[in-house]
Design a protein around this nucleic acid. Structure first.
Length: 956
RNA sequence: GCGAGGGUUGCCGAGCCUGGUCAAAGGCGACAGACUCAAGAUCUGUUCCUGUAGGGGUUCGCCGGUUCGAAUCCGGCCCCUCGCACCA
């Protein structure tokens, strides 16, 4: 069976191609332009990635059927070093890499191609387009395909940056970034594309504190500059050899590794000589800010690779310092052996920060609470984290902290740091939290970049204009519509260029820089309107000058002038310009949730900065992920299998329906093959039902036909309404679940009408087409539908028939009641009596509904007006009881329900009509009585229980 | 810690904005019956507790409040997930 899918899929994909369905050209129709955020070319994708892409295709197919001229272009983002590093791993035939490639279906002979970055990009561009998107039946305009490292794209990006410069949004300032001492800038990230070690490292911002000690300075590195008022002593590791370096005419003492890092961050650092830690012990040094002399004491925990290898001691708030100090005080022999007088360690802890839930010295508190005595106790790390966290967020500087008293720790930290920086007592120093090693084997360090370019997303005017525009956009989920306002505020300057091993566009103002990945993927949707002309050679990269883009994108200048300058024919220029005015703005940009705080804000800002008002994007749709158990797509469950393999195994339409329906797009879903299989079964079931409908050959239309046609119209209306907010899940729910359920009822009710069946099939298949186009085409063909269903119109409601829908739901209610009685009594009835309510009860109900709608329904009011009616009053006590009950019931109804209750219905004739149906259902004779009639058969006097819309039932 | 999202009946997952038709859609699973030589498929019924007459009872993380009425609105709490931050 599974192989059958592939044939059908290929058959229809070829037909679509042959009939040029995917070609989008401007015309008279309203347009709809949709993209998904193009993926980075980083290797093979897994089945989870297809979720968002599938939404985009299904939405675009719906829009196409709904009368829009749809443009759905795709491309890839190759900027960065992913391809470079993959190529180098292939070139060296790294076994893991080769295995990964082959396992995912890479032909052995392609490995050669993958040895260059360009080869990697070409190869995967092909995989994405053919094995993923075309394989899934997407109707994309493939002529427009582009990739961010193509020369024409590069020209576009350079233009974008010139525009940003014109707007004053490119700024330069110093920046501290990781770099290999040999290869230059590298990316420190968990995937370790550039690295052989340390991908999880973070950049720590240390404050270097200078302690005057004779004519030199001991340099301590701290992450907590706000604790200087608690300094009691200085720690040096007696077993480490430190170095003296000359900085700005001063002599600094710090660890040798620190000195090697420092040269990348501070100019003119001269390394002079070495000095054993022992030689520093016992000296006094002057602590910064507080200008107090404190002693230099020995501690083995000072690591030369962390910070400067020298530590200032704040035992009140640093558990390490406290433990070291206590150990020292317990062990005078060690001090003597180092030639020191133990009394020098008689030190009082100074309390500086008040934290709720802690005593005056947080470090002592937590260390004592946990019973930590030894510096090697593994719990010390935990204690440290806890104290820092609590101190940082809840702490307040106390009366020992001079001018900073009363400040929150968070605030004091920045102020005290800045004050010390200004007074020359401190310098900044950046370091990685763990050892990071480049692929080349050399260490990675933080390097100061003086002239780093940034895009100034912090610009107040740009931010407020962008926020304003976002309020007018369609942004889904609606939570993000609100949230994006905050995200835009939070977005600040972003380093937009980098040096080193990196694929991308050269920075137009300085050839040494290459534009980084987030910055060259913001305005690109508009480039899909130019790319086809570049792809077929009508324009060449060298034609793409500033005035070219100014003309086609911004409409600046005259076509004749631009033609003369660029050498592009006027006709082509005008056509591109016309295309852009027709297709832009982008109607929907669809991307995964990771884009919410990265790509979408940049996308919005760049459009706002560069494009005129009418070019600003109209919509954003964010989709969540398909995950595996515990966050990874599990190999054993097959999720990690290649996408083409999943397509083969389950069928493309099954996967498309799975993505569309399995959950709200705004929630992560755990991948589970069994669920995909159940969607495959669902499609099969639906198709069987279509087949069954096709065999119907009845001539007459009956109540069931009126009913199903009304239901169909209702479903058409509701799916159209749902798709206004791109709610594919609701569409899928109606088409693949609600409609089959209704059809089951139709058949059960004896519906056999050929013309009804044809109407239903015709509409129903069209409704399937956005999500399961291959199956829909196949069934459409068997049905004898005209042309391609993918090219057909989405059905239009023929109008609903409320009374027939009410009648059927009434009948279902009656059936349900009978059923329940049968079940509860355990009877197998031989005869079934139904008694509809007498006329006078209907009168009372009508009165109640009327009074409720006018808002003056109450028990006495209803009773009173009911009793004024002669026909009611003759029923005496029964009448007043019924009025009371009816009033109570009706008062609780919502307006919508009152509406329903007020619709007229002849229950008796309805039941008479359905008599044979009910007889078939229960396999017994049915008699329908009106409680009004005289001398009815009613041995257990059930008839008196009859109420409007609730006939009494008696089983024999 | 900040920001965002979430906790619904065996499971998945609607509902919550716009309170009443909600014991709460739909699917899956399970059970029973029909069809069938049989299996599968299909159809029907059941699937919180309870009930030999269509009823009653207790539910939607926990506690409280508003209301004639709360899964839905308000306040507090607990837990989970994700960003960001923090951490010599």
């Amino acid at each position: 069976m599974a192989s059958g899918y592939k044939q059908i899929e290929e058959k229809w994909q070829k037909r679509w191609q042959a009939e040029r369905l995917q070609i989008s050209e401007a015309d008279e129709r309203p347009k709809f332009m949709i993209i998904f955020a193009y993926p980075g070319v980083t290797g093979y994708l897994h089945v989870g990635h297809m979720r968002g892409y599938t939404y985009a295709d299904a939405i675009s197919r719906f829009k196409r059927m709904d009368g829009h001229n749809v443009l759905f272009p795709v491309g890839t983002h190759a900027t960065g070093n992913g391809a470079i590093s993959l190529a180098s791993r292939v070139a060296s035939r790294d076994p893991d890499t080769v295995d990964y490639l082959l396992r995912n279906g890479c032909p052995e002979e392609s490995l050669k191609l993958l040895e260059t970055p360009e080869g990697v990009v070409d190869f995967f561009n092909d995989v994405y387009v053919n094995d993923y998107w075309k394989r899934f039946g997407f109707l994309c305009d493939w002529r427009r395909f582009t990739s961010s490292i193509r020369p024409d794209y590069n020209r576009f990006i350079q233009w974008q940056f010139r525009k940003l410069m014109d707007e004053g949004l490119l700024i330069q300032k110093p920046y501290y970034a990781p770099a290999c001492v040999e290869c230059g800038p590298v990316a420190v990230d968990a995937s370790e594309t550039d690295l052989s070690k340390g991908g999880n490292a973070e950049i720590n911002e240390y404050t270097l504190l200078k302690f005057r000690c004779g004519d030199e300075y001991l340099i301590a590195a701290t992450l907590r500059p706000e604790t200087v008022f608690g300094q009691t002593n200085f720690w040096v590791n007696p077993e480490v050899e430190y170095v003296r370096v000359k900085v700005d005419g001063e002599i600094w003492v710090l660890s040798e590794p620190a000195s090697r890092k420092l040269v990348h961050q501070i100019d003119d650092v001269d390394i002079m000589d070495k000095i054993p830690g022992r030689d520093l012990l016992g000296r006094m040094c002057e602590a910064p800010m507080i200008k107090r002399e404190i002693p230099v004491l020995p501690a083995l925990f000072c690591d030369p690779n962390v910070g400067t290898g020298l530590v200032t001691s704040v035992p009140s708030d640093a558990p390490d310092d406290l433990i070291a100090l206590r150990q020292l005080q317990r062990d005078p022999e060690w001090m003597r052996s180092l030639g020191m007088d133990p009394s020098i360690a008689d030190i009082e802890v100074i309390s500086i920060i008040d934290i709720d839930g802690y005593g005056p010295c947080a470090a002592a508190d937590i260390v004592d609470r946990l019973g930590i005595e030894d510096g090697n106790d593994p719990r010390l790390l935990e204690a440290k984290k806890q104290v820092y966290k609590d101190g940082h967020h809840q702490g307040r500087m106390n009366s020992n902290c001079g001018a900073y008293q009363g400040l929150k720790v968070e605030e004091a930290k920045l102020r005290m740091r800045d004050d010390m920086l200004n007074s020359g007592e401190a310098r900044m120093f950046y370091d990685l939290s763990e050892e990071v090693v480049c692929r080349c084997g050399k260490p990675v360090m933080i390097r100061r970049v003086d002239d780093q370019w940034f895009i100034d997303y912090g610009d107040a005017d740009l931010t407020s204009r962008t926020k304003e525009h976002c309020r007018t956009m369609d942004i889904f989920p609606t939570e993000y519509h609100n949230n994006v306002q905050g995200v835009l505020d939070w977005f600040r300057e972003r380093a937009c260029v980098r040096q080193g091993n990196w694929l991308g566009t050269r920075f137009p103002f300085d050839d040494n820089w290459i534009i980084e990945a987030i910055s060259d993927s913001t305005l690109y949707p508009v480039y899909y309107l130019i790319s086809p002309y570049a792809n077929d050679g009508r324009i060449l990269p060298e034609h793409m000058t500033e005035s070219f883009f100014d003309f086609v994108i911004l409409g600046k200048g005259e076509s004749a002038d631009v033609s003369k300058e660029t050498g592009v024919s006027e006709e082509v220029l005008v056509r591109i310009r016309d295309d852009i005015t027709y297709w832009y703005p982008l109607d929907l940009n669809l991307g995964g949730k990771e884009h919410m705080t990265v790509h979408f804000p940049a996308f919005l800002f760049n459009h706002q900065a560069i494009m005129p008002e009418h070019g600003l994007p109209r919509g954003i749709f964010v989709n969540w992920y398909i995950t595996g158990k515990k966050g990874k797509i599990s190999k054993s469950k097959g999720g990690a299998q290649p996408i083409p393999g999943a397509a083969e195994k389950f069928g493309v339409d099954s996967l498309r329906l799975y993505y569309s329906h399995v959950a709200s797009p705004f929630a992560d879903v755990e991948w589970d093959e069994d669920i995909v299989v159940s969607y495959r079964l669902r499609i099969e079931k639906v198709m069987r039902m279509v087949d069954e409908l096709r065999t119907l050959d009845g001539e007459e239309e009956g109540v069931a036909d009126f009913w199903i046609l009304s239901r169909l119209s209702r479903h058409i209306q509701s799916t159209r309404a749902h798709m206004d907010s791109f709610d594919l899940r609701q569409l899928a729910n109606v088409v693949y679940f609600d409609i089959p359920n209704d059809l089951r009822w139709y058949l059960r009710r004896g519906g056999r009408c050929k013309s009804t069946a044809r109407t239903v099939i015709d509409s129903w298949l069209r409704m399937m087409c956005p999500i399961t186009p291959h199956s829909a085409e196949e069934a459409w063909e068997s049905f004898g539908g005209e042309g391609l269903i993918s090219n057909a119109d989405y059905p239009v409601s023929m109008g609903t028939d409320a009374s027939s829908e009410l009648a059927e739901s009434y009948l279902r209610d009656v059936l349900e009641d009978i059923n329940e009685i049968v079940r509860v009594t355990g009877m197998a009835p031989t005869k079934l009596h139904l008694y509809t309510a007498p006329e006078w009860k209907s009168k009372v109900s009508e009165m109640a509904v009327l009074m409720a709608r006018e808002g003056n329904l109450s028990i006495p009011a209803l009773t009173k007006s009911a009793m004024q009616d002669e026909a009611v009053r003759v029923h005496g006590k029964a009448a007043s009881e019924f009025a009371k009950k009816t009033a109570q019931d009706t008062m609780r109804r919502s307006p919508a329900e009152l509406e329903r209750l007020s619709a007229p219905m002849d229950e008796n004739s309805l039941l008479q009509q359905a008599k044979s149906f009910i007889e078939d259902e229960f396999g017994c004779n049915v008699a329908v009585h009106s409680a009004d009639s005289e001398s009815i058969h009613d041995p257990q006097s059930k008839a008196k229980a009859a109420a409007p819309l609730r006939p009494a039932i008696y089983l024999e």
